[in-house]
Design a protein around this nucleic acid. Sequence first.
DNA 1: CGCTAAACGCAAATCACTTGCAATTCGCGC
DNA 2: GCGCGAATTGCAAGTGATTTGCGTTTAGCG
Lengths: 135, 135
Amino acid sequence: MRDELRERGLRLTPQRELVLTAVRALGHATPEDIAEYIHRTHPSINLSTVYRNLETLENVGLVLHTHLGHGGATYHAAEEVNHLHLVCGKCGSVGEAPIETAATFVNALADDYGFKTDVTHFAVYGKCTKCSEES
Amino acid sequence: MRDELRERGLRLTPQRELVLTAVRALGHATPEDIAEYIHRTHPSINLSTVYRNLETLENVGLVLHTHLGHGGATYHAAEEVNHLHLVCGKCGSVGEAPIETAATFVNALADDYGFKTDVTHFAVYGKCTKCSEES
DNA sequence: CGCTAAACGCAAATCACTTGCAATTCGCGC
DNA sequence: GCGCGAATTGCAAGTGATTTGCGTTTAGCG
Ligand SMILES: [Mn+2]
Ligand SMILES: [Mn+2]
Ligand SMILES: [Zn+2]
Ligand SMILES: [Zn+2]
């Protein structure tokens, strides 16, 4: 981490480290979630510092964000984004599936449109098993 | 339209009709786009009325929204959502592809997870041909 | 025509970030 | 270790998008 940062003239501050730790601990976390988590041990960290560090860490490639719902983004540690998100529009549950599930789809888009798909950035939206049975 | 609404005790107001017309005319439109479009002929319609009617029309099933970028939603006429959106994260361009491109993917999720995918709600995110060549 | 509930316009409020700025602190150089 | 300048922080104010409260208007059924 230190090296990733120094290369670009960036510093490793305690706050920055805390944000990365929180992202790694939480998975699928909103900036607010992350701030709250850090506040438990370090109440003085500011929400704007969380936002700024998420941006920096994302530029450096240590974290990245995905969109799971209608609203804001959630953050992941970069190593850990190795699955699709299956979001149920009815109950809000977030399931996971291996990225390979999308392999033929991704290849089709690459072959037919030259489009290089990142299947993790947006969730896969739909209805989960439970909610399909009910209605 | 009138019938779809009456069934639920809803009214067909001029504003409501204008919103639907605008959505049909524009495709991929933000609430702001829609308000602006209507303002050209009916300057007095309020932005909050546009928001409220988009919600109502979506409940009734006449329009629906999709997420094309990091931010807010864009609205479509329901009949017209018969394609995938290919959003380039670099240049922001929005391409289209037939839904069938995702058929095997959708089937795999249904078979393996009982998950019923709506491939149009979120865009497909990635890098377009042009932007792949450059970098 | 009248009534009443639904819908409207308007202004204020909320939400999710973002930004300006003065004070602090990291990290390289001595 | 010490000093310095640039990067970073905390705080407060500012945005932009969407929502809500409320008094007024109006669609639609008698
Ligand atoms: Mn949505
Ligand atoms: Mn995004
Ligand atoms: Zn569900
Ligand atoms: Zn592009």
